[in-house]
Design a binder for these strands. Structure first.
Lengths: 249, 249
DNA sequence: GTAATTCCTGCATAAAAACGCAGAAACCGG
DNA sequence: CCGGTTTCTGCGTTTTTATGCAGGAATTAC
């Protein structure tokens, strides 16, 4: 087999599977590992693959998945934020959790909106503060440095005293069977309280998180009134939620 | 599984869920905890995640900071902050108001200090959050967009429930005859509550504000235990305060 | 406080890479 | 077709890398 031919084959494999192992290539093509290594090196120098210890990766693997500066999947989250804004009207009391999706919602609020926003998430509160017309209520308590929200019994007690018109939950994982789940015990306690207090519960989730599960349960899907993703409501992936009686946007 | 591949997976998980545990990752990917830890360490060095005890956090909304516009008389305020820090010891409950002098205090806190800091000022709270060892309690209520602090009866009620060891007040105007005065009614209400609750009241003021008066009265000088300025305690301008029984630093 | 995790350091091992070399194959100008 | 040159390939050796393991220190949780 010719060198060029071999390299073309390797390139094809990389693009097909996003990854190749030197070891498997050399048995497939029946050449020594050195040859494969030299081929990969050449391809890497030409920028056609990314060489790593043990094999090579396709370009798409490495670059795309990592947002340098901003938010992961920001465009999807912007879409979600726009849909969510449609549910808010003037004069409403809106309770929100934290998370990057909610941040996106906060940034996208139309300037003329007059409503009251309540949250315990510091980054989200900062966004709300920039808005000219909304009132901002901050839920106080001990601050969790990890999640940048106030956590504890005081915060939960405060939430339970309220009866907001609508509640937006940034979601970590959602599944038809297990409902909303999360990975931080304190955050879960807060979200539970938020769900209990609110007249209407809206769950914001990028499609990637649908049908994933985390260790701690927040609520079952029965407790959710509306589910918003960046997908169109007719998408098959959302059908189980529609069937369960959730309004999907 | 290739190392890069694994790291890409980890990064993806972090971006998706904002937080990962080393323990759960190592069962998911089926490698030893050491490997996961080394991966997280590398990713952290590349600035792609933030490593914490037991796992890692997403970078996305973790470095919140307030736009800090040039602080007026910063050097004097640094001097004041240094003097104020001398009054804080490990284990104390410290209540603080807002204002740039307090900001300077927050920034200057020694990293090894372990204490609990309480405030309703968003910019100050953000500074406290950057500190590795202090606990931060946020007083919640409606946010005043002007002064960036929480104001209202809930906030005042919360303060009244506490009995902090010491209270640091950033001062707008102080005068031997009229005591501490200010120009924002809501802020004054809060400061009054803070003074009432605290075992010890420390007033931080740059010399420029001494012997000035604002329209609304916070308290008389009898209520002040300690006065800190950038001047030496022997300075003639401070003599009236010494004579009034205030400890001047 | 004490117990349980988690972290770090050094080390051992196995896998992979780099290097030099030599034989084989391809190329090329006559 | 042929000698000379270049390129390619495989092999053995040395280096580097990746990973796991054991212990003691540090941190966190109860």
């Amino acid at each position: 087999m010719l060198k060029k031919e071999r390299q073309a084959y390797i390139l094809h494999q990389v693009n097909l599977h996003n990854k190749v192992l030197s070891s498997s290539l050399c048995t497939e093509i029946n050449v020594s590992e050195d040859t494969i290594r030299r081929d990969l090196q050449e391809l890497a120098e030409e920028g056609k693959v990314i060489k790593v210890h043990g094999g090579a990766l396709s370009h798409s693997f490495n670059d795309v998945s990592f947002p340098v500066n901003g938010v992961y999947s920001q465009n999807q989250k912007k879409t979600i934020a726009q849909k969510a804004i449609g549910l808010i009207s003037n004069g409403m009391f809106v309770l929100t959790s934290g998370g990057t999706t909610i941040m996106e919602l906060a940034r996208s609020l139309p300037p003329q909106l007059k409503a009251t926003f309540i949250s315990g998430s510091i980054p989200v509160i900062l966004e709300y503060m920039h808005h000219p017309n909304i009132e901002v209520i901050l839920i106080g308590d001990k601050i969790s440095k990890n999640s940048k929200i106030t956590v504890g019994s005081e915060a939960i007690a405060k939430i339970k005293q309220m009866k907001p018109d609508i509640c937006f939950l940034g979601t970590n994982a959602i599944d038809v069977e297990h409902g909303i789940t999360d990975n931080d015990w304190e955050v879960v306690q807060l979200k539970k309280a938020m769900i209990d207090s609110s007249k209407k519960v809206v769950c914001l989730s990028i499609a990637e998180k649908i049908n994933t599960v985390q260790p701690i349960r927040v609520c079952g899907i029965d407790d959710i009134d509306v589910l918003i993703t960046e997908l169109s409501p007719g998408n098959p992936v959302l059908k189980p939620f529609v069937d369960a009686g959730i309004k999907v946007l």
